[in-house]
């Protein structure tokens, strides 16, 4: 625990029109770990992800990221800081090809100006090759080569989830937020996706925070589990510790077993 944590949430609270969604939640995510947020529906998991990447601004509390503190984070700022995410209901550009979707993930890495790009002069060519190269590396990493030119909207659900992960990875994030990356998948697809997430952590050293309902997957995949219930934190520790904690069993695990 010598190194500073990558992400540190301090006493975050969030409410919508007086209804408390998140109450006083604090936890830390270490560099390079896979941290799972679990809890029943409506526990505030997605809201918490939205706070981390700046979709919602918390009423109270501080977000520490990469050694800096923020009272609130803007979406754009989060992206610039290296936070990428996927969504529960896939948010892809459905009318664009897989390659173009992945290329939008390179958005912030483009160095040339729009004038250079329009007339294909200056830094534009080198830039284009670089972005394409990086995008292709990710496409290869996630094994979606054969759908490179397919329009995303025409692909099956499981593949779209993979494309969304690809777009997030294309930005070379330090922190990857995955909102139910395996929802609606069968066993085989789930294990494939788990392997991709593990590979991502190993190959790129990316820190991952994910929301997942499948307890089996969560326990196998994560280094660290945070349990939420009614917007409050009721458990925080390694998968083994969490499994044994009475509050957690009462709040969550007990109900599903």
């Amino acid at each position: 625990m010598g190194a500073t944590p990558l992400l540190e949430l301090q006493r975050i609270s969030l409410s919508f029109k007086g209804v408390k969604a998140i109450t006083d939640i604090s936890f830390t995510v270490e560099q390079g770990e896979i941290c799972a947020l679990i809890g029943p529906n409506g526990a505030g998991k997605s809201s918490l992800l939205n706070v981390i990447n700046g979709v919602y601004q918390p009423d109270q509390g501080l977000i520490g990221f990469n050694g800096q503190r923020y009272q609130k984070m803007q979406s754009h700022q989060a992206a610039v800081q290296g936070i990428a995410r996927t969504f529960q209901n896939i948010a892809l550009f459905k009318g664009m090809s897989v390659l173009d979707n992945v290329l939008t993930g390179r958005n912030l890495k483009v160095k040339s100006s729009w004038i250079e790009q329009a007339f294909h002069i200056g830094r534009a060519l080198a830039d284009e090759i670089k972005q394409r190269q990086k995008a292709e590396e990710i496409i290869d990493f996630l094994r979606i080569n054969q759908w490179r030119n397919s329009i995303v909207g025409t692909l099956p659900y499981g593949l779209q989830k993979r494309v969304e992960l690809a777009r997030a990875l294309a930005s070379e994030p330090r922190l990857l937020l995955l909102d139910e990356p395996m929802a609606g998948m069968n066993r085989e697809e789930k294990s494939e996706m788990s392997a991709f997430i593990l590979d991502t952590q190993r190959e790129f050293g990316t820190t991952v925070v994910l929301i997942e309902h499948d307890i089996g997957v969560v326990m196998g995949l994560s280094d660290h589990v945070v349990v939420l219930d009614y917007g409050k934190k009721v458990g925080d520790g390694t998968p083994d510790e969490v499994r044994k904690s009475p509050e957690v069993i009462a709040a969550y695990l007990g109900t599903t077993h």
Binding site: N53, V55, A79, F87, A91, L92, F93, K94, G95, T104
Partner: peptide, 13 residues
């Protein structure tokens, strides 16, 4: 034009 939420997530202003 395609998806505003997704656009925000990849850092488009």
């Amino acid at each position: 034009a395609d998806d505003q939420l997704a656009a925000l997530a990849v850092g488009i202003k």
